[in-house]
Design a protein around this nucleic acid. Structure first.
Length: 241
DNA sequence: AAATGATCCAACCGCAGCGAT
DNA sequence: TATCGCTGCGGTTGGATCATT
């Protein structure tokens, strides 16, 4: 066992790490994070890899500002479910719980400040749905409203996979793959193959149990994705594709 | 142009739940 | 049934960036 504090990397991810992670997730799927972390040679915990993938690297992610419609939904669902961010996120394809959480915090802070100030005609302009907003705000503290709707998952449980699948299937043009957006700024376009399907994942099942393969995979990682390439995004990404 | 405050966002932490053994 | 390891969730923090003075 390696000591967490001295062996694992922390802090911001480098571009090289992102590349490695993306490639290994495409090879092995986004489930076995400890395995991916180990075989990729990334000095990160599985947890850290998962977070990076889910919140930043996943191709289905929608970047940029929340649309008014999304804002409305967030407010509405928060009023209904409280701080169940992942649950709320399931209703907003392409948005992550982290993103929504962050949005809400900012929103709430603004709201709190507005409350402190005396009401003015202009202050309402930034508030698209004040009624649900107020409800949510008052219910939020303590999360007392959370249980209220716990059993009202009328359409059943959605995993993140289900959501991404939906996005894929709908061929929605609302959602721009994160890499497109992120790297198009640097004039670099990426077109990853689809994620590992459960079918092929099961065919790869044996891999998960082969400890001996881990060392192979590690050397593969090093061979395929050396960590010493240029800083130039476009060249480094395109060289892998 | 510099200083300060506000906002955004990526990442970490701790905990709970779940499945495997 | 107890334990262990992994995954996912919610809360929190800190750095980067933007806006204002």
């Amino acid at each position: 066992m390696k000591s967490v504090q001295e062996e694992y990397r922390k802090g911001p991810w480098t571009e090289q790490e992102d590349i490695l992670l993306v490639n290994f997730v495409h090879m092995f799927g986004d489930r076995r994070w400890d395995f991916v972390a180990k075989v990729s040679g990334l000095n990160r915990t599985g947890k850290s890899c998962r977070l990076r993938w889910v919140n930043y690297l996943h191709p289905g992610l929608k970047r940029g500002k929340m649309t008014p419609e999304e804002e409305r939904l967030v407010l509405e669902l928060h009023a209904k479910w409280g701080n169940r961010w992942s649950k709320i996120a399931r209703k907003l394809p392409g948005r992550t719980d982290n993103e929504i959480k962050n949005y809400w915090r900012t929103h709430m802070r603004k709201k709190a400040q507005e409350k402190k100030r005396p009401m003015s005609p202009t202050s309402s302009s930034s508030n698209c749905c004040s009624s649900s907003m107020t409800t949510a705000a008052t219910q939020d503290t303590g999360g007392s409203n959370v249980k209220m709707n716990q059993e009202c998952e009328e359409d059943g449980y959605y995993s993140m996979d289900d959501i991404w699948r939906e996005i894929d299937q709908s061929g929605s043009n609302i959602i721009k793959p994160v890499k497109d957006i992120y790297y198009s700024e640097q004039s670099c376009y990426l077109d990853f193959p689809p994620l590992a399907s459960p079918a092929w994942e099961s065919s790869m099942e044996s891999i998960w149990n082969m400890d001996a393969d881990e060392s192979k995979m590690s050397s593969f990682a090093i061979d395929q994705f050396p960590l010493s390439f240029e800083h130039d995004r476009s060249s480094s990404w395109s060289s892998l594709l």
